[in-house]
């Protein structure tokens, strides 16, 4: 993950779903390995963060693509689709609530480490009463281990759903439940 630009406004912290009982220091505090609070980003901040992150982690993040979408277009999609993007340590997390089933959220992560995603699921369960989670990821994604460790199981494959780097690719659809 690259450093954030200096132009972003002060982050707005949301209640932390900290994995263990660490002290609640400021976001991005002294130990980058165990962040204490996910930091909600504005659409513009999220667009910049997704653009700066490695493309192999961000292509297909909740349907976004920093390779073909510049920051303005990413920010517009993030706003229009009501996607919430959070920074959690080195990872970017995203979710959007299913408007037809408010207890279900589509989620995304840029980390192969399950801890950030687990924190997001816990946060959504605690504060959005979410009980059902869906993820759609491009075939070959490096973040699949994080999803599997958090209990996601495959529920389908969308053939030819994406065109990346010269060919059409599948999207894997995964799901997990968490009882509130």
């Amino acid at each position: 993950m690259t450093e954030t630009t200096t132009a972003v406004p002060a982050p707005r912290a949301v209640p932390a779903a900290a994995p263990t009982g660490e002290d609640t220091g400021p976001a991005g505090g002294s130990d980058p390995q165990t962040p204490t609070a996910p930091e909600l980003l504005t659409p513009e901040e999220a667009a910049r963060a997704l653009t700066d992150a490695p493309v192999r982690l961000t292509r297909g993040f909740l349907g976004l693509d920093p390779v073909t979408q510049n920051t303005a277009l990413l920010a517009r999609h993030i706003g229009d689709r009501e996607i919430q993007v959070l920074r959690y340590g080195e990872a970017l997390l995203g979710y959007t609530v299913n408007p037809l089933q408010p207890r279900q959220a589509h989620v995304a992560t840029t980390s192969a480490d399950p801890a950030p995603l687990d924190a997001l699921l816990g946060f959504l369960a605690d504060y959005q009463r979410a009980t059902s989670f869906v993820a759609e990821v491009p075939e070959g994604t490096p973040v699949l281990p994080a999803l599997e460790s958090c209990g996601f199981t495959p529920c389908g494959v969308l053939p030819g759903h994406l065109f990346h780097s010269g060919r059409y690719r599948e999207v894997l659809v995964l799901h997990t439940d968490r009882e509130g």
Binding site: N98, P102, T131, S132
Partner: peptide
């Protein structure tokens, strides 16, 4: 192509939905 559990709130409970498609 896919069966997504709890994708729609219908008649008082969440129900599964399928994704159908063609290429």
């Amino acid at each position: 192509e896919a069966e997504v559990p709890h994708a729609l709130w219908l008649d008082g409970r969440p129900v599964g939905r399928q994704i159908w498609g063609m290429c």
